[in-house]
Amino acid sequence: MTSDPAMDLLMWARGPGFQIATVVLLFGIVLRIVEILALGRARDLAPPKASPAQSGLRTVFSRFLPRHGMAMRSPVIHIGGYLFHAGFFIVLLFFGPHIQLFEEGFGIGWPGLPSPLIEAVTVISMVALVAVLIARVRDPVRKLLSTFEDYAVWVVTFLPFLTGFMAVNKLGLPYTWMMALHVLSVELLMVVLPFTKLTHAVTFLFARYYNGWVNGRKGAAT
């Protein structure tokens, strides 16, 4: 009773926890990038029809848009996917306390969005995540493709939204507990990111570039 376990946990999360998470995240990302790039690829001797590098860069951006007919075939994955990704970045980058984190870390800040808006985006993101989870369980293809990792990663992605929302709205445990859990959940996300499919957050750049490179040099659509 004479020390606050919630505050102790929060302090751990802000201190050693954050240190560990940062170290694992950065170690992992650099490791994975080196691991991938160092595998290299053979020089292509066939004369290109178009600039492969240009096509690679174009593909990095063009794949942000839905592809022909796909949105109609998989509406939940598309709508849910866009909402979640947009929501993730809006909440991460435009919630006042988060901005403060960047200000402290990188020395640059920017104006935030009002809390009610952030909360609305959080709820939308969570709904989107639930929707894509349901779509994963119900669609035979995604169900077949899914492994333990897919579900574990879903949980790890969902938790920061949930704990953040609960902390701000004083739901569940007392605020300090929720705050500590929120920070810890983000740290969990940071730790698993380099070693799960969440790596796509970084490697999609390479994947798209390679795809654009390989096919663009043939003059083919990418």
């Binding site: 240190q19 403060q100 984190l101 402290e104």
Partner: peptide, 11 residues
């Protein structure tokens, strides 16, 4: 004078 959620250590 540091925000609550800010890491306490310089990483």
């Amino acid at each position: 004078y540091q925000t609550l959620a800010i890491p306490t250590e310089n990483v």
